[in-house]
C-alpha cells in the first residue's frame, strides 16, 4: 500500500532528515512509528501523504506517486495531523462540510465513535471544545471516512486516561484487513495492546520494521536477576523487582512485547538488530 524507495529528504543541505530510506507498509496492520524527537516521524507521514516531496527516491502510495496528490489517492487516505484544524463550526456542520468528499463516509459509525468518546452533543462548536474533545471529534471523523490508509500523528496527545482506553477500543473496531493504520507517537504505552507492527526510525533510516509476532519470536522480554539468563542480553534496565532485560530469543520462549524496552534495545544494538531481522525494509 505504501512503498518508499531510497528516499532522500533534507530541509536544508546541512539538515538531512532521510538518506536512502526504504520502507514498505502493507494493509491489514496497525503500525506504530517510534523515534526520538526530531527523527523525522511527522515528515515521514507527510511524505507518505504527498504533503512533502522527497528530493530523491520514489514514494508510492496506493499505487500512485504520492507527490502528485491525485484525487484517487486522496480519496483513500486520511491524515490526522498533530496540528488540528478545527474551524468555528458545530460538529454537525463540520461533518456536513467535509463528509461529502469521502465516498465511504459512514455517519452511523461517526455517531457511534463519538458516543464511545462520550461526546453526545453535536451542536457544540469545535472552537468551544477542549483540545482533547477536539481530538476525539477529529479521530471519530478520520475513522468514519473509511479510507484505506489512515495516518495519525500523536493521536493520543491531549486525551485523558479513560479516553485513551476508548481510543484503543475504537481503533480496534475500525481496523480491518484491507486497511492500513500508521500511528506516530511518543506515548508507547497508549498503543501497547493496539499495534501489531513496529517501525523504528533513527538517524534518517528505518532501524526496525517488523510485526509484533516476529519481534517476540526473535526477542525475549523478561524480568530476571543479574545472572538469571544465558541468552545474549541486548538491553538491561534495573528496577525494584530485579532487572528487566531484552535478550535474543534463543530458546524460543514466548514473552510479552514491551515497546519501550524494545525501543531502547534497538537504539543500543543497531547492528545486531539489523542482523536478527535481516531484511531490506
Amino acid at each position: 500500500m505504501i512503498q518508499l524507495q531510497d528516499i532522500h529528504f533534507a530541509y536544508r543541505k546541512d539538515r538531512v532528515i532521510f538518506n536512502e530510506l526504504n520502507l514498505s507498509l502493507t494493509n491489514g496492520h496497525i503500525y506504530g512509528l517510534f523515534g526520538k524527537n526530531g527523527a523525522g516521524k511527522t515528515t515521514l507521514l507527510k511524505i507518505m501523504a504527498g504533503l512533502r516531496f522527497a528530493q530523491e527516491g520514489t514514494v508510492t502510495t496506493l499505487g500512485e506517486n504520492a507527490a502528485l496528490r491525485k484525487t484517487s489517492m486522496l480519496k483513500d487516505i486520511y491524515f490526522l495531523s498533530e496540528e488540528m484544524y478545527a474551524p468555528a463550526l458545530t460538529i454537525k456542520k463540520y461533518v456536513q462540510c467535509y463528509a461529502p468528499f469521502y465516498e465511504n463516509f459512514n455517519h452511523d459509525q461517526f455517531d457511534e465513535y463519538l458516543h464511545l468518546f462520550e461526546i453526545t452533543d453535536q451542536s457544540q462548536k469545535l472552537t468551544a471544545l477542549s483540545l482533547g474533545q477536539k481530538k476525539k471529534v477529529l479521530i471519530s471523523f478520520a475513522l468514519a471516512t473509511n479510507t484505506k490508509i489512515l495516518l495519525m500523528d500523536e493521536p493520543t496527545n491531549g486525551l485523558d486516561i479513560p479516553s485513551k482506553t476508548s481510543f484503543r477500543k475504537i481503533m480496534s473496531m475500525a481496523a480491518s484487513d484491507d486497511r492500513l493504520i500508521f500511528i506516530s507517537t511518543h506515548q508507547v504505552r497508549d498503543l501497547h495492546s493496539l499495534i501489531d507492527a513496529v517501525v523504528i526510525l533513527d538517524n534518517g533510516s528505518i532501524l526496525l520494521n517488523a510485526t509484533t509476532d516476529e519481534i517476540v519470536e526473535k526477542l525475549c522480554f523478561k524480568v530476571t536477576d543479574a545472572n538469571g539468563t544465558d541468552e545474549p542480553i541486548l538491553y538491561c534496565e534495573d528496577n525494584l523487582q530485579g532487572s528487566t532485560v531484552v535478550t535474543e530469543n534463543v530458546h524460543h520462549i514466548e514473552t510479552k512485547l514491551d515497546i519501550e524496552l524494545l525501543f531502547n534495545a534497538v537504539m543500543m544494538n543497531k547492528q545486531r538488530i539489523n542482523e536478527l531481522f535481516n531484511r531490506k525494509f
Partner: peptide, 16 residues
C-alpha cells in the same frame, strides 16, 4: 495558510 495541510488533503484535484 494556517490550515494549508488540511486544505491540500481534501480529496479533489488541484484544478478543481
Amino acid at each position: 495558510t494556517n490550515r494549508g495541510m488540511h486544505y491540500l488533503m481534501i480529496p479533489v484535484s488541484a484544478t478543481e
